[in-house]
Design a protein around this nucleic acid. Sequence first.
DNA 1: CGTATGTTTGACATATATCAAATCGGGTGG
DNA 2: CCACCCGATTTGATATATGTCAAACATACG
Lengths: 262, 262
Amino acid sequence: MTRPLIARLRLVPLLTAHELAMIEGLCGSTRTVPAGADIAPQGDRPRSLHVVVDGWAARYKSLPNGRQHFPALFLPGDVCDLDGLLLHTVHSGVRALSPCTVAVLPHAQLRDLIDQRPAIRDAFWWMGCVENAIATEWSFGLGRRTAGERLGHLLCELLARLRMAGLSTDDGYALPLSQVEVSDVLGLSAVHVNRVFKELREIGVLTVKNRWLTIHDHRALKGLSHFDPDYLHLEGPRARAGADRRGAADPALDVEPLFMPR
Amino acid sequence: MTRPLIARLRLVPLLTAHELAMIEGLCGSTRTVPAGADIAPQGDRPRSLHVVVDGWAARYKSLPNGRQHFPALFLPGDVCDLDGLLLHTVHSGVRALSPCTVAVLPHAQLRDLIDQRPAIRDAFWWMGCVENAIATEWSFGLGRRTAGERLGHLLCELLARLRMAGLSTDDGYALPLSQVEVSDVLGLSAVHVNRVFKELREIGVLTVKNRWLTIHDHRALKGLSHFDPDYLHLEGPRARAGADRRGAADPALDVEPLFMPR
DNA sequence: CGTATGTTTGACATATATCAAATCGGGTGG
DNA sequence: CCACCCGATTTGATATATGTCAAACATACG
């Protein structure tokens, strides 16, 4: 079940249906990982690529005294260790934040595909660039945004990304993160995250109940966090000159609609 | 004069001398950019790649009320707008922090080279991954390190990167950044950066004089900032299976030594 | 039901920001 | 070569956002 990756790649006008099928065919096995466990092994010469199919995961880094940080969050459809394809040692681990299902694509075969098919190469390279763009935005937030702006911005980003994956309703989504985990994303203390949530709740912008986030006033949330989704590159990668590819419109692959009906 | 890029790529056992020459041959023009000016145009469909040959540059992002942040720093040898090759809109600008010389490689020709030569593709893709790894480390610092640790860590990183480029002495380097600019990298106020510099000076770890940084006690600086250079991937990308490439040892290209004599 | 985990709240501590002024330093023009 | 000047650095006083500690509550789970 690599649907989410395919759904994501389908957005990419770069790929033909045939190429999508090739990628899908590559997914040998699927693993399930309990919350809290590592998804991708750290260390030398990683041998495969992991795609989150279900659940949420995060890259993590920590310091001896217990300080921890999540510099990236991976949602269904995201490749969570793209770097391992090029780098020969991977230093940051990836941990499941909720129970996860991950697809495992062996590097060797993926490399063959990348060598043969420039469009596939570009699709994966492009995903790395988007990850980079998101990291840049987070970096800015950590450096220059207030706690309230950071939280608001994160929640808007997650809505946009989940919506693209077809995993949100019009005004909310399942948020499997504890406040402690949110604090490790935002570089704040858990207590302070709690206070900011409370504030947003009190001004009527959102509600969290039973791990479900409802955004009552999306406009306000976007406004107070200065959210602009451009950096997510929801429009897909740039087309290759002269290419007339149209995977996204090809009905050969039966994939769920990408946007929820309003 | 694309020497610095070539010097950087030479570290990469991936590339043959011939391939290095191909890349070097691509560099049509060279531009000089005054401090404070933009190097790479933002916006849709960028048409070329820019390599810093001399001087320092930074990616920047800002908010209306004047808050500014530099999520990445580019030193001689660094490609400063790799993302533009894949992304069809570039949202963050790159600004020269000191007077810069940049080499301009047209995307069209670079793409041809990348299509033909997997090793060249991997070299550029790899540089993107390293940029990503550095961004991840900075992100961690912004989220979880104290002001002192952040500054110390940055100064260690710059020493390592400059040393790789042959631009440091054994115990210091030219630091063209003002304290305001450092504060925009570290997500601090300029005043506080000044105080942290003072502290490091008073405990005898470093001196800044005339835009030259001298590190008197490197061990202490590394210790207090928990610096570990692994994330810089100074060892180059992973070799391709079965490849026996050895550009770095090939004397055909007359490139300066990469490390200063002690 | 009890136990563990997550959330909420309060009181207090502190790192860092802000504002404002003094001083330094180096380039420029006379 | 000196005097001026402008940006950069330095310092002090004060403000504030956020962290820390600790306890009380919820909530889910077995």
